[in-house]
Simulated scan of single mutants.
Amino acid sequence: MSLPSVLAPVHAGPSAHLLAADVLTVSTGRVAASASAVVALVGLVAGALALARATGRLRSGNARARALVALVASPIGIVVGAVVVLTAEGGLGTGNGLGGGVVAALLGLAGLALGGLALSRSPLSRTA
């Protein structure tokens, strides 16, 4: 399955209309994708705050602890988002959480990068 076939619109034929989910339909794919996006967003925010603290732009909080939160939460968001993407049947708009899984994976990657950067810039890592 190639990327263009996964991201293809649902308007492929008359039977595709039956596959599309309603906006308010709650499926397990959507719930898992939303939960992983929230976890990845927590990692992203923690990484951004840790980086701001490590560079001296924020005076309160512990940069190392926030960076560790980012380095734990972000991979969880990446893994769960990737599982949702890999198990989603159909394309975008079918209610299987494909879009949310992609967003969760991207947020998790950004949070992982920010957390790693903040941890490398934290004062405790420079004492070696």
Rank of each mutant, 00 (worst) to 15 (best):
A35E: 07
V83T: 09
G108K: 01
G100H: 04
G95T: 01
A20T: 12
R64M: 06
L112I: 03
A37F: 05
L114Q: 07
R30M: 10
A105C: 09
G95V: 05
G77C: 06
A113K: 03
S60Q: 14
A67V: 06
G43N: 02
L51W: 11
E89D: 14
V45Y: 12
A65T: 07
A50Y: 07
L71N: 04
G29P: 04
L58Y: 14
L58A: 13
G111W: 04
G61N: 04
L112F: 13
A105W: 05
G101D: 05
G90Q: 01
L68Q: 13
L106Y: 04
L49A: 10
L98E: 00
G29W: 07
A67S: 09
L51I: 01
S60K: 13
G93H: 03
V79Q: 10
A88K: 05
S34F: 05
V102K: 04
V42P: 12
V45R: 06
A88F: 14
A73F: 11
T28L: 13
G101H: 06
R66A: 12
G101A: 08
N62W: 15
A82I: 03
V83S: 11
V84H: 05
A20R: 04
T55C: 11
A52H: 12
L107W: 04
I76Q: 11
G100R: 07
L98I: 06
R53H: 08
G108V: 00
A20P: 15
L44G: 08
V39P: 01
L107Y: 06
L92M: 09
G101F: 08
A40S: 10
G43R: 01
A105L: 07
A48T: 03
L49S: 05
L106D: 15
V42M: 15
T87M: 13
V85D: 03
L68T: 12
S60G: 13
V26M: 09
A40P: 02
S74F: 07
A110M: 05
S74R: 02
L109K: 03
T94C: 00
D22T: 00
